[in-house]
Design a protein around this nucleic acid. Structure first.
Length: 779
DNA sequence: GCATGCTCATTTTTT
DNA sequence: ATGAGCATGC
């Protein structure tokens, strides 16, 4: 039986099936194994009806993995369980009963960009100063209100006299009204409205309370107030609630996760059985020591200490490089050499960073070395223009009340309907409190609209009408075909492709990419139609749409199989593991990020520290932490101090590698190394490629030589890690410098970290050297 | 109605 | 550095 594979703590967690259970599962402690075994145990040993089991995760990936593992243990009966994410669980509940709280059951789900569009319209409607009221911050405010189950009224009440909050409350009210009118829910609504449904409909609540007799929640430290409330409502009564989480890995506070949910679980439920899973099966002890020592600096946490029986292990390597280019070269060079020595596959390496913008340098280096990689994050497939257009068509077919989508496609491809016309139509719609589409249907009786526009509008309405009339009879993939053909969307792309081919302006590829993406979308639809997820449900368009709204690129299984190095943020790395991990950018203002440092709230630094903990605990056997003397990020060059987190690591588990910065030599060495690689590398790059790479490195070298004049050196008197402005003592009155944006100029005076410079073109300016890297042209 | 240039901000992100 | 959003001009 599976249970025999478990360690004592894991076994306890599995066998305690009744009553509230809190499993504090450290990184790599086998929590998925515990959860899946627990489910199998419930069914096979406790004879629990599979239909009585609800297991909730945060990501599709986690849900899929769990579903698969449970199915392997208990077979087909797993199909009767609900193993899903919070959001898709809520969609299922809402599809059935949302009409009881005044929504249409064929609602659509608005994503982040739909939210922005909608909020912008609200801002316009209220005629607000959009400098002061940015859509983004309004949305995040509304979102966090919803996470706390605050409706517009409650929000307004709590806003009190604060002008900004009061105004946001107005926006929130209109925003919510518009969502309802469009039969649309945003992601936060999925949870919020489910709670509302259960709160206001006792029969529905009782149905699900009766159904879900055993509830398990994964990643409990990431739950929001609303999710907490939802779980609590369902678990009230039988109290068979088992939550699994790790407060040390709570890294989503900024998006509404409330760490108190896990810290106070024992207060919220009676007689909680607490299990700590502290044996780690992933990493060497030395890596765990490093992680434990770091995280001990946090105050708000449940004490636990990970241990491993992998007593061997290499120390964690810490390396200082000159700048992000050198850093990336170093990392990639190490990956290359390590793979040569150990025979490891490239997929066994990961490079982690704090912000996506840091990926560029690493990518460049990997390209130079011709090492294949996968980068996570960046433009998402479903956010591409052509895909959004297509989805908008599908949504309008399901739900013509969806104004945002109607507006998106009413003139795509062009039907001669201009902005002015759309404005008129919108005004009419809001005046009559009707949907845009119903105004379109009635356009012939609208004297404001020109004949030309009317023609276009009728064309559009007729098309949608046809699509709607046939959509019940065809699967989503066929509807995709029909849309692309009948609207002329595909034809337009083909025409663009041809036109640009003739012009040879390189844009024909773009059109072809779009066509390929649309094809890819169709494949996704076909795959969805073929999918056997155990449910008997008909694969209709609205379920398909919900499905894609709730899934992301990260769920794609195909991409990770390849022999590629992984590049991702530490956030995205949660839940993953790699034999060799590099964390780059271990510098103040990069990691911890500047905003956390300047934040008045200590908890922001603690969250950064937890993120660092997550990063470190991804590593199975080898871990590298790198930092640089100077870094260009967001177009600005900064001289950063070494991250405080590096100083919080235990001396005896880290090895500080030789860090003398000798950039020119380094580049020279690199060049020779690369020539070697050209001969050694198994993909055997061509002679020309090797030459090209050599040339680029030489270019680099030139840059470095110029850079070197800036003379960033360790300032001897100030301890080993200061690289600040005082280390540029040579800059004095009369020094000719080059500023990245002001150009050339002569230094007039110098006071501490600030110099006054007369620029040739921009006049006299004061430059704070703490924030700017200048190049010295002549002393 | 569309292309082109300028200004601006810029964490993390799943659902 | 870069891309998105917006204003301007054809």
């Amino acid at each position: 039986m599976y249970i025999d594979d478990l360690n004592p703590a894991q076994k306890q967690a599995v066998e305690k099936t009744e009553g509230p259970v809190l499993i504090l599962a450290g990184a790599g402690s086998g929590k998925t194994k515990v959860l899946t075994t627990r489910i199998a145990y419930l069914v096979e040993d406790k004879n629990v009806n599979p239909g009585n089991i609800l297991a909730i995760t945060f990501t599709n990936k986690a849900a899929n993995e769990m579903r698969e593992r449970v199915e392997n243990m208990v077979g087909e009966s797993s199909h009767d369980m609900w193993i899903s994410t919070f959001h898709s669980c809520c969609v299922k509940i809402l599809r059935k009963d949302i009409n009881k709280i005044g929504y249409n059951r064929s609602f659509v789900i608005y994503d982040a960009s739909d939210q922005i569009t909608l909020v912008k319209e609200c801002i316009k409607e209220l005629d607000l100063n959009d400098k002061k009221f940015e859509p983004k911050s309004i949305i995040s405010t509304i979102s966090s209100a919803k996470d706390k189950l605050m409706d517009p009224k409650e929000f307004a009440r709590q806003a009190g006299t604060d002008f900004w909050l009061k105004t946001v409350a107005e926006v929130y009210a209109i925003y919510q009204e518009r969502l309802i009118r469009s039969s649309a829910l945003d992601f936060d609504d999925l949870i919020f409205k489910t709670v509302e449904l259960l709160k206001t409909n006792e029969d529905v609540l009782n149905f699900y309370r009766g159904k879900f007799r055993y509830i398990m929640v994964d990643e409990y430290q990431d739950t929001s107030r609303a999710q907490y409330e939802l779980v609590k409502m369902l678990a009230m009564g039988h109290q068979n609630i088992c939550v699994v989480g790790d407060d040390d890995q709570s890294i989503y506070g900024w998006r509404g996760a409330d760490i108190r949910n896990i810290l106070e679980f024992e207060k919220d439920y009676d007689n909680v059985f607490v299990v700590k899973l502290e044996q780690n099966y992933r990493s060497t002890q030395i890596i765990l020591d490093t992680a434990n020592y770091l995280i001990a600096n946090n105050t708000e946490r449940k004490k636990k200490k990970l241990w491993s029986d992998k007593k061997d292990g290499k120390p964690v390597k810490v390396k200082l490089l000159k700048n992000e280019v050198e850093e990336a070269n170093y990392v990639v060079n190490e990956i290359y050499e390590n793979s040569m020595e150990t025979g490891r596959n490239f997929s066994e390496y990961a490079v982690l960073y704090r912000a996506n913008a840091q990926a560029r340098a690493v990518e460049d280096a990997l390209n130079r070395f011709q090492i294949p990689y996968n980068i996570y994050g960046g433009t998402k497939f479903y956010e591409r223009k052509e895909i959004k257009d297509l989805i908008a068509y599908l949504r309008v077919i399901v739900n013509p009340q969806d104004d945002i989508s109607v507006k998106r496609i009413i003139n795509v491809p062009r039907r001669g309907i201009g902005l002015k016309t759309i404005e008129k139509l919108e005004d009419r719609a809001s005046m009559m409190k009707e949907s845009l589409y119903s105004v379109l249907l009635d356009v012939d009786n609208n004297s404001d609209i020109s004949t030309k526009s009317k023609k276009g509008i009728n064309e559009f309405v007729d098309l949608i009408g046809i699509f709607r009339s046939i959509s019940d009879g065809y699967p989503p993939s066929i509807m995709v075909d029909k849309i692309l053909e009948m609207t002329g969307y595909l034809a337009e792309l083909e025409a663009q492709k041809l036109k640009n081919e003739k012009l040879q302006n390189g844009k024909s590829e773009e059109a072809q990419d779009r066509i390929d993406n649309l094809q890819e979308f169709k494949s996704i639809a076909i795959e969805y139609e073929k999918r056997d997820d155990g449910s008997e449900e008909v694969k209709n368009l609205s379920d398909f749409l919900a499905n894609i709204s709730l899934s992301s690129d990260m769920d794609d299984e195909n991409s990770k199989e390849m022999e590629k190095v992984s590049l991702m943020t530490m956030h995205s790395s949660k839940g993953l593991e790699f034999p060799v991990v590099f964390i780059v950018g271990m510098e103040e203002k990069v990691f911890p990020i500047a905003r956390a440092i300047s934040s008045l709230n200590d908890s922001d630094i603690e969250e950064e520290r937890r993120l660092c903990y997550v990063g470190i605990t991804r590593a199975m056997r080898e871990l590298y932490l790198t930092h640089t003397a100077s870094r260009t990020l967001y177009g600005k060059t900064n001289v950063n101090l070494k991250s405080r987190f590096l100083k919080e690591l235990p001396d005896d588990s880290i090895e500080i590698l030789d860090s003398t910065i000798k950039p020119v030599e380094y580049a020279g060495k690199d060049y020779s190394l690369l020539q070697n690689y050209a001969q050694k590398y198994k993909n055997s790059m061509s002679v020309n490629k090797a030459k090209e790479i050599g040339a680029r490195i030489l270019d680099n070298k030139n840059e470095i030589q110029i850079d070197q004049d800036v003379d960033i050196k360790r300032s001897e008197g100030k301890g080993a890690d200061s690289y600040n402005v005082e280390s540029i003592p040579k800059v004095k009155k009369g020094t000719i410098i080059n500023h990245p944006s002001f150009g050339e100029g002569a230094v007039i005076s110098k006071l501490g970290g600030e110099i006054t410079v007369a620029f040739n073109k921009k006049g006299v300016k004061k430059i704070n050297l703490e924030y700017t890297t200048i190049k010295v042209l002549k002393y």
